[in-house]
Each structure stands twice: as structure tokens, then as C-alpha cells.
Amino acid sequence: MIKVAITLRLLLRRNKNFTDLNVENEDLVNSYEKIATNSSADIRKATVTNAFSGKKKSTMITIILIVESMGFTMKDFGEQYNRISDKDILEFEKNILKIQS
């Protein structure tokens, strides 16, 4: 769950970095709301938020919908997922999960 959340956050950060570079593209998906809206299925913003939180398991179809709505492929997701280290997981748990409690 945590590796999925970390991976989704890193992919979303890539999109946000394009926004920060003043790339004017209204279609760029750079928020949870835009992910839900851009999804090819009816996916709720709360479902998206849960996937990014690392607290609840997401179904594979939810992950696929989120990844594709951000403009990435499952190959992109898999490559990023495989780069997540135990250190990354511990840092996420320490920083993110404590903040959300």
C-alpha cells in the first residue's frame, strides 16, 4: 500500500513540476480533483485521496485509472515502483502517516 502511495505521489509530482515550469497546459493533471475528473470511469475524489494516503488498499483497476488519468502508463508506474527503497518507505511512514493521524 505504501509503495503504491509513494509511486503515485512521485508521478503526480512530475506533473506538478511541469506546472511549476510555467507550462501552460490546462489539460495537465496535477491534483486529486483533476485525476478524478480526468478518469475514464466515475472515480470519486475520495477514492483518489485514499490511494495517495497509503492507509487503505486500492484495487488494481483504481490504480490503473489513476495512473492513466495522469497521463502515465503502467510501465511508468512499474518502473517508479521498483525504485522505491525500504528507506523511502520508512521516511514516508515517519513523515506522511504521522501528519495524517
Rank of each mutant, 00 (worst) to 15 (best):
M1R: 07
N50K: 14
R83D: 13
I63S: 04
I96G: 00
A46I: 02
T62W: 11
Q80H: 02
T37H: 12
R14K: 14
V23Y: 11
R13P: 00
V29E: 02
N15Y: 06
M1F: 06
R14S: 07
E79P: 02
E79Q: 15
N82K: 15
E68V: 13
N17E: 14
E68M: 12
L12K: 08
A36K: 13
K98W: 01
L65S: 06
K34R: 13
T62K: 15
S58H: 03
D88A: 13
S85N: 10
L11C: 02
I89A: 11
I66D: 06
L90F: 09
E26Y: 08
L90R: 15
L28S: 11
K55R: 00
K57Q: 10
K75L: 02
N25F: 07
K16H: 02
S40L: 07
K55G: 02
V4R: 07
E33T: 13
K45L: 09
E26K: 13
I35W: 13
F18T: 10
R44H: 14
D86W: 09
L8T: 11
L28P: 03
I2M: 00
A41V: 12
M60D: 01
T62N: 13
I6V: 10
S40C: 01
F18L: 12
T49F: 04
S58I: 01
F18P: 01
T19C: 08
Q80S: 09
N17Q: 11
S31D: 04
E93D: 12
K45A: 08
I43T: 15
R13K: 06
E24M: 00
A41K: 08
L97Q: 01
Q80M: 14
T37C: 06
L12Q: 08
Y32N: 13
M1L: 09
F18W: 02
N30G: 02
A46R: 04
Y81C: 08
I64K: 15
G71L: 02
L28Y: 11
S53V: 01
F52Y: 15
G71K: 03
T37D: 13
K98A: 12
D86L: 13
S40V: 08
A41H: 07
A51V: 03
E26G: 04
N82Y: 10
K34T: 05
I64P: 02
T7Q: 10
I43S: 10
K75W: 03
I96K: 10
N22P: 00
G71M: 01
D27V: 03
T73W: 04
T7C: 03
K56G: 00
N17F: 05
S31T: 15
K75E: 14
T47E: 14
E68P: 03
T59G: 14
L8H: 10
I35A: 11
T37V: 14
M1I: 02
I89D: 06
M70E: 10
K55W: 01
D20W: 07
G71Q: 05
